[in-house]
């Protein structure tokens, strides 16, 4: 019986596993291999160049700019999204309509979000400048995406806007599983809503928050699609919105350096992995078992 079961399992899984192997694992492995070559994308026999590509990374101003900007996004985006999502989830407890509304951005593809926000930010007929003029704040009008000091923040706002909805739903669901009697007991003991949230709700939904940190950390290290579609250049003005993913894409498809781009990919892979592990460690708390 047992053997038969395994044979059945293997038989059922062989197609998906093969597909996974060919389309996921094998490209990853080949990217690792290409990172040590000077492959230009069309050459049949790329040369092995050892660690050259990795050495280059640390003196490549564009890659370093991308690293800096992704770093800033890593500091800002997860914190902002989690704070906003927790606040909205707590404030809209029990009202499902809001949750549906907040979830809308999640239904749009990144490309559509980027194009929509481009219309919001566009200088002369954009929604944002129009709204500012409508309330008499003409002096606040800006070419939002064309000013180096503002552009990256404008991109981050879109990233936050498009992510919040999902975490509102996630946190709301978690909050619903917090037993009502604990909250009531705390209230009877004289705890205000803030204390209840800090001492009761947050610890009890911490696992969801932890997941949020990791997903958002990974998202903050990306930003490629938004930057590629929305920004001047793209990646500008003057590389002020350069992110690592964009650098990788440009290096491969515009500069024809697939080997070097693969090295960037490998670097980003390990960076993302380390950040995920780090976030997991830092946010680790004692698990609360609900009886």
């Amino acid at each position: 019986m047992r053997h038969g079961k395994y044979r059945f399992l293997v038989g059922a899984l062989i197609v998906p596993l093969a597909l996974y192997g060919v389309f996921v694992l094998s490209p990853y492995l080949q990217a690792f291999q290409l990172a040590f070559t000077n492959w230009n994308g069309v050459d049949s026999a790329p040369e092995f160049t050892g660690l050259d590509n990795f050495g280059r990374l640390w003196s490549d101003p564009l890659f370093l700019a991308g690293l800096r900007h992704n770093g800033l996004m890593l500091l800002v985006v997860p914190l902002a999204v989690i704070a906003i999502a927790l606040a909205l989830a707590a404030a809209t407890k029990g009202t499902r309509v809001y949750r549906v509304v907040y979830f809308f951005p999640q239904l749009l593809s990144v490309a559509i979000i980027a194009v929509l926000w481009q219309f919001v930010y566009t200088p002369n007929s954009g929604l944002l400048n129009g709204a500012l003029s409508a309330v008499g704040l003409d002096s606040w009008r800006r070419s939002w995406l064309a000013e180096p000091d503002l552009a990256l923040w404008c991109v981050m706002i879109v990233l936050i806007w498009s992510s919040v909805g999902f975490y509102v739903v996630l946190f709301s669901a978690a909050m619903e599983s917090v037993p009502e009697d604990i909250v009531e007991a705390a209230a009877i003991d004289g705890a205000g809503p803030v204390t209840v949230f800090r001492r009761i709700t947050l610890p009890l939904i911490w696992e969801s928050v932890q997941v949020g940190w990791i997903y958002l950390g990974i998202a903050a290290l990306d930003g490629f699609a938004l930057v590629q579609i929305m920004t001047v250049g793209p990646g500008g003005p003057d590389n002020s919105t350069e992110v690592m993913g964009l650098g990788l894409y440009r290096t491969a498809f515009a500069f024809g350096k697939f080997g070097y781009a693969s090295a960037m990919g490998v670097a980003i892979f390990f960076l993302t992995l380390s950040i995920a592990v780090l976030l997991l460690r830092v946010t680790k708390r004692e698990r609360v078992e609900l009886a």
Binding site: L159, D222, G223, G245
Partner: peptide, 13 residues
């Protein structure tokens, strides 16, 4: 968004 970056990596690879 993570998917997109991975998408770019994947298509290259």
């Amino acid at each position: 968004m993570n998917l997109t970056r991975r998408g770019a990596l994947l298509s290259a690879a």
